[in-house]
């Protein structure tokens, strides 16, 4: 990825968008890249305002209300049957989710 935004100012190039779409596992067409890249630039420039007030001594908030982890007793409770869990699968084989090959052909 390019240098830190502090020195360059916010902007997001067509190449950046193509790279990010790859990370997000979305194939974008050339036309989509032409369309989305300038829009995303405008959005990024606008949201970069958050840095104006985000001083180092402000703690971050990830969750609106204070919560602690919730545990339950380790007992079996009803869940989906295998048939229910597989009912919406695009492809099923031997009571399992059937997926395209994960590794390359040579592997």
């Amino acid at each position: 990825m390019p240098e830190t935004p502090e020195t360059t100012g916010p902007s997001i190039s067509r190449a950046d968008v193509a790279h990010l779409a790859g990370l997000a596992r979305i194939d974008l067409t050339e036309a989509e890249l032409d369309h989305l890249a300038p829009q995303l630039s405008v959005i990024v420039e606008s949201v970069a305002r958050v840095r104006e007030v985000a001083d180092e001594d402000v703690p971050p908030t990830s969750h609106p209300l204070p919560v602690t982890n919730v545990f339950r007793d380790d007992v079996v409770r009803p869940g989906l049957s295998a048939d229910e869990a597989l009912a919406a699968a695009p492809s099923v084989e031997q009571q399992r989710f059937s997926v395209p090959q994960i590794l390359g052909e040579e592997a």
Binding site: E3, V17, A24, V44, P59
Partner: peptide
Amino acid sequence: IILGTYALSSGYYDAYYGSAQKVRT
């Protein structure tokens, strides 16, 4: 999705997602 992927990517995380969480505070 692309904007979120950008905000969370290394090198940008502190400037964007991290700053936004501070604004939330």
